[in-house]
Amino acid sequence: MAARAESAEPGWWGLTVRGLRCWLTVYRRIWRSSVYSSVLGPLFFLGAMGFGLGSLVNRHGTAGLGGVSYLAFVAPAILATQAMQTAMSESTFPVYGAVKWNKMYIAARATPLRPADIYRGHLLFIVIRLAMNSVVFLAIAAAFGAVSSPWAVAALPAAVLCGLAFAAPVAAWAITVSRDTAFNYALRFGMTPLMLFSATFFPLSQLPGWLRVVAYLTPLWHAVALCRSMTLGTLDAGSAAIHVGYLTALAGAGLWAGTVTYTRRLYA
């Protein structure tokens, strides 16, 4: 038999990839509908915000936006927001369901995978989903003329990092949740305000000072600022380092916490 056998003593990466594969198998069943929504979602958003609202805003001058069109201002924010939304939806109910509904985690824990491998494998799948959605979005945004710098290519890893900064800690929390209603609160009272007040649809200068300080502390603001500096080509190394550092720290803290909470939940 010529089939290649995998190493008998796989390392953490090998086991993580094994943890990823089951999600890909499941995804093969639903990818059509998911592509549909990841193409149509940004089309609607860019259309409504960029052209609908944008035509109104542009008419009154865009100095407050840094002199770019409203479409160019809002597109990178929608990119980051979409990454957050993808991350949140993939790291809440699916995590819960993998314990309670389809029991994918419970099945997987009886195999060589450790809870940390199961966690990282799932995150790796989320990273792939983030990359897919972000590529599609960037392509559509570029086609709409919302991108003005070759640096926009770097907005792809930035959006993925943004998603991971949400997915890693949220999944770490989701595995500890005993009733799925908790997710609705998180989405409604966590995600919605972030989406509205992170310099997504208007610059932070429109907000009162104290709210601006709050916004500076939120991950989505950093992600929006990072993605925007890339699609507009206004990147400066100092602030990029702060944004990347912030998001990486959040993802890293999530990864650490998830290893603990997954082990506690799956190895009772």
Partner: peptide, 30 residues
């Protein structure tokens, strides 16, 4: 064989075995 079934009911019989076998790092042909 756990007390409660942990099959993925949204996959086929064959896919359940495939997913599970891949956790063990078995090649697809095997």
């Amino acid at each position: 064989v756990p007390q409660e079934d942990t099959l993925d009911v949204e996959l086929t019989v064959r896919e359940n075995l495939l997913v599970y076998g891949r956790y063990f790092g078995l090649p697809r042909a095997v």
